[in-house]
Design a protein around this nucleic acid. Structure first.
Lengths: 219, 219
DNA sequence: ATAATTCGGTTGTTTTTACAACAGAAATGA
DNA sequence: TCATTTCTGTTGTAAAAACAACCGAATTAT
């Protein structure tokens, strides 16, 4: 687990905490490390969480499948990001989504109660970490609102433009890659893949953008 | 402002803080009170916030209007709830939505930096309030994910069922009222009002539910 | 290297939604 | 009280999306 301390050091959760302190906190917060093969579930809808988790290797999707097999991708977790933090509060209820490894992944679990309860001993970073938690979840909150903005658009084209524009802005470049293949992008925007593919090609033919695989350029 | 201390006392932000301490914190956190007539804007898209705010009277909608006049209602703020907390972190960027009074409303502003910076003097409740902030924003986060769940549904009918079921569950009764008229519900679910109205009546005729104004019963 | 699977694009059909326009009922205001 | 505005439901039409089925290319596995 120590090998991942440099990764943890760069996370929002441990911002302002040095490597030495993180090392101490791994013990104090009862950190545990698990690995998952591509396709395996880290959590399933309906579970109750007692951990905040940080992804230190690989990639995850937060998603849910309905009865008819329609999948909805809520969020993408990349290295250094947290998940499950919205379920840290007592009485948060069951997890609303599945969390799935989209590539071989490694995750570190931290005991929630130990983060929230200030212990008497060595680690005096709890209150900083709680503030970090707050900032991190704020950012996630804003991201969810942006996603709502995409999904609120009435047509597939508008959804695509809304999402791709934001991604271009976020990556500060008209050319950028997205973390999805076509089916995943459709699941992320909650539209039909073939219809979306069709719309993307129309937009390309109209000179709005070009793309190759998951690399897009807005014109 | 003191008249609202009992209201503040029941909020998630001040959970575990007594009325006397809240009274002290009103000074310490430089609380300011503002009132808005129905229809007035509390905040506008693009503004930068330096305050966390609590609604103590009336009702607010967090919404945004696009260029063509399509409105999207992101969230409803009821008495005792906070808003703007996702913009408390430094570098959060500009507000993504408008916040509008849907009835005559009163709001109390708290200086964000004073909440996040532990002051040396009297108020030793900062760290508790930061934890409360974290819990409150967690709840909002889960709510946004639920809303994403409604909006991810492909048809108007499914969106309605998803939303109404959740509302029924939340209010622990098959009969419940919603905080929207028809146009607002359509804006909340991002569908056309007349199409939605039509679908609602079909569902009623099929015996799935009954309704009168904003009071619904699932059968 | 070859077979099998996944992925992305295309097309035609069916279903659904958006849009527009209107009318009666209800609520609001003068 | 009466006039005005808002709200809800209804209908028909046009536009868009979902769905299904298919194909070739690319990727992955054996």
């Amino acid at each position: 687990m120590r090998e991942y301390i440099p990764v943890l050091n760069r996370t929002k959760l441990f911002a302002g905490v040095g490597e030495a302190e993180i090392s101490a906190m791994l013990v104090c917060l009862q950190a545990k490390q698990y690995s998952y093969k591509k396709g395996e579930y880290v959590f399933r809808q309906g579970e109750y969480l007692n951990n905040i988790t940080v992804l230190v290797e690989g990639g995850l999707h937060v998603q849910s499948d309905d009865y008819w097999g329609n999948r909805s991708i809520i969020n993408v977790i990349t290295i250094g990001e947290m998940f499950g933090e919205a379920y840290a509060a007592p009485g948060s209820g069951a997890l609303l989504n599945d969390v799935v490894a989209v590539e071989d992944s490694t995750v570190i679990f931290f005991d929630v109660r130990r983060i929230l309860t200030v212990c008497s001993s060595a680690c005096k970073f709890h209150s900083l970490v709680v503030q970090n938690l707050f900032f991190a979840i704020s950012e996630k909150n804003r991201m969810l609102v942006q996603k709502l903005g995409h999904m609120a658009k009435r047509s597939t084209r508008e959804k695509l433009i809304s999402y791709l524009s934001e991604e271009s802005k976020r990556q500060s470049s008209p050319t950028f890659t997205i973390p999805f293949n076509r089916q995943q992008l459709a699941d992320f925007l909650s539209v039909d893949r073939s219809a979306m593919s069709n719309e993307l090609c129309k937009m390309r033919d109209e000179g709005l953008l070009i793309f190759e695989k998951n690399k897009f350029t807005l014109l």
